[in-house]
């Protein structure tokens, strides 16, 4: 079996969110970069687990980005990827452009399984998986919480409105992964050592259109400040929630 896991580089979850150049760009000064948590903790680790069950599995990683993504790609290789492909682009593009690049890799790679995280924690698009599936012409199961494979059939549990659903689908398939798929891991020393020599291919992007552009960013208006209520006077809190906040 051949698996492709899409990994994105995002600011660390504790990074301070600020903007520069007239709020047109993310201010990455002092920001630590990580593998997007949904891509790492759920998509990649589940793929590694599948490889552990079936040693003949080939696990590829794909990233669309510049050389500054190489450290997070090496970390993904240390966790357990066999080989990585980086589509070399540093320009700011939209989801469709990124998906077009991944779709090109997917088409040429003959993958049985393509995993993405449910969304990135920076753009919060949750669109790459669906776009890739559509461009390649594959079925797509989103927001998966469990994934099992038996022969050429995948059994996937996904979140639906007010519950979950268990689906069966024949490979190949694109799946977006979220909490429940797997547990986060840390790379071991052997993994870190072997990652240094694993192939990281850098390929140039294909021509693809861009449909959207970000005009500027905004921070939410600051809170007015907390109103403290004495724990012995909680009727006052109820009154405020009713009369002032009008939420009960």
């Amino acid at each position: 079996m051949k698996i492709l896991v899409c990994i994105s580089k995002t600011p660390d979850t504790t990074a301070k969110i600020a903007f520069k150049n007239g709020n047109s760009q993310f201010d990455d000064n002092g920001v630590q970069w990580i593998i997007n948590p949904y891509d790492e903790w759920y998509a990649l680790v589940r793929a590694i687990e599948l490889k552990e069950k079936d040693a003949s599995t080939v696990l590829h990683l794909v990233n669309v980005g510049g050389a500054d993504a190489d450290p997070i790609i090496r970390k993904a290789l240390a966790l357990g990827g066999d080989e990585a492909i980086r589509i070399n682009t540093t320009d700011l593009h939209d989801s469709f452009y990124v998906a077009s690049q991944i779709a090109e890799v997917a088409r040429n790679g003959g993958y049985d399984l393509i995993f993405t995280g449910k969304e990135t924690i920076d753009y919060n698009g949750s669109s790459i998986g669906g776009m890739v599936a559509e461009l390649v012409g594959l079925p797509y199961i989103s927001l998966a919480t469990h994934f099992e494979i038996s022969g050429a059939t995948a059994t996937v549990t996904r979140e639906i409105e007010g519950g979950e659903e268990v689906d069966e689908v024949s490979l190949p398939v694109v799946v977006s992964c979220q909490k429940g798929m797997a547990e986060a891991r840390i790379p071991n020393m052997r993994g870190i050592m072997s990652a240094r020599t694993k192939p990281l291919k850098v390929v140039e992007p294909i021509e693809a259109p861009v449909f959207t552009t970000i005009q500027n960013f905004e921070l939410p208006p600051p809170k007015a400040g907390v109103k403290l209520i004495n724990p012995d006077n909680l009727s006052e809190l109820v009154r405020l929630l009713h009369e002032e906040a009008k939420v009960i």
Binding site: F96, S126, M131, E134, P209, T212
Partner: peptide, 23 residues
Amino acid sequence: HNNTGRAIAGRLSARLKAAMVPA
């Protein structure tokens, strides 16, 4: 942008070659 919307919005964008804004 619920579970169903997240599953189709990206696909629709790719199929219709249409700009999409999620969330």
